[in-house]
Design a protein around this nucleic acid. Structure first.
Lengths: 157, 157
DNA sequence: TTAATAATGAAAACCATTTCCAATAAGGAG
DNA sequence: CTCCTTATTGGAAATGGTTTTCATTATTAA
């Protein structure tokens, strides 16, 4: 199976192997950390966590694996404007909590919210369909973020 | 007037000066380029354009100015995942064409679309209000992007 | 087990963005 | 208009997240 087409369906080991990727210790460790962690880990965060248990998994491998996972759609790569990418496990088939982000532009704190998600997602799906047709795009993903100043940072001013 | 509060109202020279910022040649040049350009320029793009006419405006100044403009809300700083920030003039008081972005994850091409914008914006405003109250955020901005594979890149596979 | 080749780690390279700092220039006061 | 305070600047150097290189190792299908 060509790697390019391995996006969007299947799951975990099978998905991984089925796409011609080998399953290695490092990759499992990274998947493990990501699937258990909540929140938004940077490559280095992940490296740190793994390094305790597997001291011989390098940061380079973390970056490489995250890239693969991101291409496979198993992980979302996010940018909250603090100069490093953040990674978030794409919820599994059981459909965990789809959420969007609320970012404080001053302290970079990020709140995951699920409020209003249903309406948002419905509209997004519609829009996706429309845009996909009009611009001949195969739309695979969307990003919504709200930016503002959080309560604490508002106070400081 | 404290700089921190200079966001969201006023316009151009006045806005600039009123916030304690000095109006310099470089800054005007950058504003000029941004307001005329369509599309999404990187700091270096802007630097290049300016450099022809004003060879003594440095790249550092471009970065600094973009930062100021971004903080003032006169410019949007965008990330399309190609490793460099892109800047887009925030449409003036005459309210030009508010748009969102459709990004090809393979070639990084970006399409500005205005379709469905009205519905989107309406929903976003509602959501903003709700989120703002619930999380005590002063929401100032939002970001919506759709990701997918464009027609050309689909063909290549 | 073996061969073919994907994956790895460590160090070096990359490169967009920031920081430093001495020199310059904007703009209010007089 | 001139002076003075201080924001701004350019250039070079530093920063720091991410990628590349390359020789070595490990996974998988046969």
């Amino acid at each position: 199976m060509p790697r390019g087409e391995c996006k969007g369906q299947g799951w975990w080991h099978g998905k991984f192997r089925g796409c011609g990727y080998r399953l290695t210790l490092g990759r499992e460790a990274i998947l493990d950390v990501l699937s258990k962690a909540e929140g938004h880990l940077s490559a280095e965060d992940i490296y740190m966590k793994i390094h305790l248990k597997y001291p011989n998994v390098g940061l380079t491998t973390v970056y490489r694996t995250l890239d693969v996972l991101s291409n496979l759609g198993m992980v979302y790569k996010l940018d909250f404007g603090d100069g490093r990418a953040r990674y978030e496990f794409a919820e599994g088939p059981k459909g965990a909590h789809h959420h969007h982000h609320l970012v404080c532009t001053q302290c970079n704190k990020v709140i995951d919210y699920t409020d209003f998600i249903d309406d948002e997602v419905e509209l997004l799906n519609q829009t996706e369909k429309g845009l996909g047709q009009k611009y001949k795009f195969k739309i695979t993903n969307h990003l919504i973020q709200f930016y503002g100043v959080c309560e604490q940072c508002s106070g400081k001013n």
